[in-house]
């Protein structure tokens, strides 16, 4: 657009078209991001659905067991470590707070419910996203940029069935098991700090843990862990599978950025969905 020097635009002032653009630009950016986000969400949902339907293919079992080893069994040590110290710090903080009110007998209730309902599923999912999720994205991303996924297509091997379905199935199996491990070890951690180190009554602690929890707490925690399994496996596989479609980078850098995005998006979605699922379960 040509600007006339003799028009009402004074030297140094911004022409009206630029001002209007400045005003509308934030809305345009917001709209663009929203469209992109919704489009990715839809694509991820279709991606998940297609891969999920292929889990029952007869040639899948060996690959699912292999992925359970990579995603589940290999994450056991880190889950044991994190859960133990989470339980211990929870016992420590809770005991010092409860003792002010003379309510140290409620320590077992507080530790058990906090772990089984919230911290167990959430922290397990975040830890697996950081450890196994990032590896999934990087592995699939490299396979994409080195044409290994195209090679599967040319060999008539469905990449979704071969690469994605076993990882989703393995996540659905591994997440609840590791969450259970987290809960048990976390309660033991609370016992170590609250009872063994700070002197709370051992019998009361164990009794409160047993008495305060009912089956719904356990199933709610498992429901959450399964929801997180779907989220983490889908986000991590999707980010790797479409690493070559990134517009901000190419090649190895795209794989690196996809890996970072996978972990960040997984963690954010775990926390957001935790709130949504919790509110649904409480109403239910």
């Amino acid at each position: 657009m040509a600007l006339d020097a003799n028009s009402h635009n004074l030297p140094g002032s911004k022409p009206p078209w630029r001002i209007s653009m400045l005003l509308t630009k934030p809305f345009a950016c917001f709209g663009q991001s929203t469209i992109s986000w919704v489009s990715n969400l839809g694509a991820s949902a279709i991606f998940l659905m297609l891969a999920f339907l292929k889990i029952l293919h007869p040639k899948q079992w060996g690959k699912i067991i292999q992925q359970i080893y990579y995603i589940g069994a290999s994450s056991t040590m880190i889950i044991l470590l994190v859960s133990l110290f989470t339980g211990m710090v929870l016992g420590l903080q809770s005991y010092t707070a409860l003792v002010k009110f003379g309510a140290q007998g409620a320590l077992g209730t507080l530790v058990a419910l906090t772990l089984v309902r919230e911290l167990g599923p959430v922290l397990t999912a975040i830890m697996i996203a950081a450890r196994a999720g990032s590896a999934i994205t990087a592995e699939i991303g490299i396979q994409r940029i080195s044409e290994q996924i195209d090679a599967l297509d040319t060999m008539r091997i469905d990449p979704l069935r071969y690469l994605i379905s076993p990882r989703i199935a393995a996540s659905i199996i591994s997440f609840p098991i590791l969450t259970a491990v987290f809960d048990i070890v976390g309660i033991i951690g609370g016992y170590i700090s609250g009872v063994l180190l700070l002197g709370a009554n051992a019998g009361t602690y164990v009794y409160r843990v047993q008495a305060s929890m009912d089956m719904k707490d356990v199933t709610d925690g498992f429901i959450k862990s399964i929801v997180f399994a779907f989220i983490v496996s889908t986000v991590c596989c999707y980010q790797g599978y479409f690493a070559h479609m990134r517009t901000d980078s190419h090649g190895a850098k795209a794989v690196g950025l996809s890996t970072t995005s996978a972990v960040v998006i997984s963690c954010v979605l775990i926390l957001v969905s935790d709130y949504v699922v919790t509110s649904l379960l409480i109403r239910g």
Binding site: I142, E147, A151
Partner: peptide
Amino acid sequence: YMFQDNALFD
């Protein structure tokens, strides 16, 4: 199809 960069599974 034989790929230019082989596309072998590493």
